[in-house]
Amino acid sequence: MATLDDAAAMALALPEVTETEQWKTWRAWAVRDKKFAWERTYTKADLKRFGDEEPPSLPVLAVRTDGLVEKEAILADPPRGVFHIPHFNGYAGVLIELSVISDVDLEAMLLDAWLAMAPKDLAEEHRKR
């Protein structure tokens, strides 16, 4: 069970990551100004689409994937806590229910998101470590 602060610490441990506020409300993390993870709340439309189903509990983290093929591979056998909503159709990203995902899976998802957005030279340097 992870918190938003746990996710922030994991993201900030990666090379050249900065934390910003998105719309002065939500936290977001970027590598060289390319956002790879951010806090995601539900819009009224999101909640309406859940209907009678209880939405995953907040806080939720959105993370980038390395394209739609990787996204579909993740969603074919997702780690516990990883999910998708219609708003993300056609977008290379998935959502994570922080109160459910394991720390190990969260760290792996953040690393993959970072690698998807990091410049090639920085990603290669990190892989060599």
Rank of each mutant, 00 (worst) to 15 (best):
A8Y: 06
A8E: 12
K35S: 09
A123K: 14
L68R: 09
T3E: 02
A62Y: 02
L68S: 09
T65D: 07
A45L: 06
L106V: 02
N89I: 13
L58C: 10
A37M: 04
T41D: 10
R64Q: 14
P56N: 06
W114F: 07
L12G: 09
L58I: 13
P119L: 04
R64V: 13
K120I: 12
D5E: 15
A118H: 11
W114P: 04
P15T: 08
R80N: 14
A116Q: 08
W38I: 07
D112V: 01
V69G: 14
R80F: 13
P15V: 08
F50H: 03
I101A: 04
A108T: 09
E72R: 15
L98G: 00
K120W: 02
P59Y: 08
G90L: 01
S99R: 13
W26H: 12
A76H: 12
S99I: 07
H126D: 06
A2P: 11
W23S: 11
K34Y: 08
L115N: 07
M109L: 10
E16A: 12
L68T: 14
V82K: 03
D46R: 06
A13C: 10
E39K: 02
V31W: 03
A118V: 05
Y42Q: 03
E97R: 08
P119V: 00
F36H: 08
L75K: 02
L4C: 04
T25P: 00
E19P: 03
Y42W: 10
K24M: 11
A108W: 05
I96G: 09
L58F: 08
V60K: 01
E16T: 09
K48L: 14
E19V: 00
D33M: 05
V100D: 12
F83L: 01
D52K: 15
D33G: 06
L58R: 13
E54Y: 01
F88G: 03
K44N: 13
V104S: 11
R64K: 15
E39I: 00
D121I: 10
V63A: 09
L110R: 01
G90I: 09
D6H: 12
I74A: 13
L61K: 05
K120S: 13
H84N: 11
E125R: 14
I96V: 15
V104C: 08
F83R: 00
E72V: 08
G93N: 07
E39W: 02
R27S: 10
E125G: 11
A11I: 04
E39N: 04
D105P: 04
V17I: 01
L61H: 04
P78H: 05
A9T: 12
W23D: 10
D33Q: 11
A8M: 04
P55E: 04
G51K: 11
L61C: 03
V63W: 10
M117H: 12
E125C: 07
A11T: 12
I74K: 14
D6L: 03
E97N: 10
K128I: 02
F83M: 00
A116I: 10
H126M: 01
I101V: 15
K128G: 05
E70W: 02
K24C: 00
N89M: 14
F50P: 03
K35G: 09
A113N: 03
H87I: 05
R32N: 11
